[in-house]
């Protein structure tokens, strides 16, 4: 199929050109990400307020998180962003092999993150870091920290799982040929994936790096 024909096949109603379709998709995702910024922003603001009220208890609680798992997961996510960016660029350039390989790598890194997170959750539970009766730390405010820990990492994991699901579907569609590489969906997925990465970039210093010095 020629380049022009491939682009026409990727064009959908109501767009008159692939360029506008692509910009529309990116704009839509950015608006959605704006709502996500507000969603995570509210939780982070509440965390920041409690942290400024009880800095010592929060530092002591942050020391209890596993920095090894956290750092490995940060590296995994940042690397998944690299492969996602390469996949989106590859799709735009019509490079099928690069797109498919990089999408697969992105999904693999994302699943790797969730696996590491699972081990970390297991360790947290056995260390009695779940807020409630029998909590490990004495300071009651440390439970607030861990309430945020579970909420923020849990919601982030849900977002990441969504991204993994979409990436898998797009990868299969591209592999079967039912979705043209010129489709703006790859770039839209990339924007979402990078945003989920960005959320973790801020969760990592707040949840894992506090109270280490």
């Amino acid at each position: 199929m020629s380049d022009i024909a491939a682009r026409n096949a990727a064009l959908r109603q109501p767009w008159r050109s692939l360029r506008r379709q692509r910009e529309g998709a990116a704009f839509g995702i950015w608006i959605f990400l704006g709502s996500e910024v507000m969603f995570f922003g509210c939780a982070l603001l509440t965390f920041a307020v409690y942290r400024s009220l009880w800095p010592d208890a929060f530092a002591a609680a942050a020391r209890e998180t596993n920095i090894t798992y956290g750092t490995v997961n940060t590296a995994l996510l940042l690397t998944s962003s690299l492969t996602m960016a390469a996949a989106a660029e590859g799709a735009a350039a019509g490079l099928r092999r690069l797109t498919l390989c990089c999408l697969a790598a992105t999904v693999a890194f994302g699943i790797g993150f969730l696996v590491v997170k699972g081990f970390e959750y297991q360790e947290d539970i056995t260390k009695h870091l779940v807020p409630g009766a029998g909590f490990r730390l004495e300071a009651p405010q440390a439970q607030i920290f861990f309430a945020f820990y579970w909420l923020l990492t849990g919601v982030h994991a849900v977002h990441l799982s969504t991204g993994i699901g979409i990436a898998t579907v797009l990868g299969i569609q591209a592999w079967r040929g039912s979705r043209m590489l010129a489709s703006p969906a790859f770039e839209a997925l990339g924007l979402y994936w990078h945003f989920v990465d960005l959320v973790w970039v801020f969760l990592y210093p707040l949840l894992y790096l506090g109270g280490r010095s």
Binding site: E23, A26, I31, L33, G34, E36, M38, G41, A85, L191
Partner: peptide, 26 residues
């Protein structure tokens, strides 16, 4: 990540504005 991976280095004012909207609210 935002400039290079999310392509805000491209001169597209609509996307740049949309990206900043959330930050203004924050």
């Amino acid at each position: 990540v935002v400039v290079f991976f999310m392509q805000l280095k491209r001169p597209d004012p609509l996307l740049r504005l949309a990206a900043c909207a959330g930050l203004v609210f924050l």
